[in-house]
Amino acid sequence: MSCTLNGIVAAITVLGSATIAHSAVDQLDQFRWNHRIVVVFADRSDEANYVQQMASLRDAQEALAERDMLIISVVSDVAAIIDKPQLKLDADSLRKRFGAKGRGFRAVLIGKDGGAKLSSNRPITPAELFSTIDAMPMRQSEMR
């Protein structure tokens, strides 16, 4: 009986771990069709590229809001949605999903359809970001 119980506990543990890792992707899926997302990856929050990227996004708050954008910061093993820290995300799942498996800086623009639209190993300027978004058919429709 205890062998069966141990097996059940082990299975629940494995299933629980898979659910936690998968839930990060599911949390992004809840924003599909409603928000565009910029994910900013870095080793440390004091890296020059990370600081520059976050400052340029902070300075463009009005334009970001106009385009229904959310910012996700992934620093080391911690991932969080800026202005929504209560929503915890799985950093490893995000790194795998958006090709930022190694450490280092990377910025990725995700469209409302959930697909990566722009990816860079250097900070993306607001002009680059907004010109990419504004050229999208969905954004063209929103501007009419």
Rank of each mutant, 00 (worst) to 15 (best):
V25F: 01
G7E: 02
V40R: 05
L64E: 03
G115Y: 15
L109Y: 08
A60R: 02
G115W: 13
T19M: 11
G16M: 04
T13E: 15
V75Y: 01
M1D: 14
V14M: 10
V78W: 01
A11I: 03
A100Y: 06
R58S: 13
D59F: 03
M54Q: 08
A42L: 11
A63Y: 05
A18E: 13
H22N: 10
P85E: 03
D113V: 03
A21T: 14
Q53F: 09
L64T: 02
F31V: 09
G7P: 07
I81A: 12
G115V: 14
N49E: 14
R122A: 13
Q52R: 09
L89Y: 02
F31M: 13
K101C: 02
I124M: 03
A60W: 04
S131R: 06
A10F: 09
G114S: 06
D90T: 11
C3D: 08
Q30M: 13
K88Q: 15
E142D: 15
S73M: 04
H22A: 15
A135N: 06
S93D: 07
A116F: 08
H22S: 12
D134V: 02
G7W: 00
F98S: 02
V39I: 15
A42I: 10
I12Y: 11
Y50Q: 01
H35I: 00
M1K: 09
N34E: 12
R36H: 10
D77I: 12
D59H: 09
I37R: 09
S120Q: 03
I133C: 02
T4H: 03
L64S: 00
S119T: 10
D46T: 14
M69N: 05
A48I: 04
Y50V: 01
A107F: 00
A65E: 12
V14E: 14
D43M: 05
F41M: 02
M1S: 14
P123T: 05
A91Y: 10
A55E: 14
V14H: 09
M136L: 15
A116P: 03
G16T: 06
N49L: 07
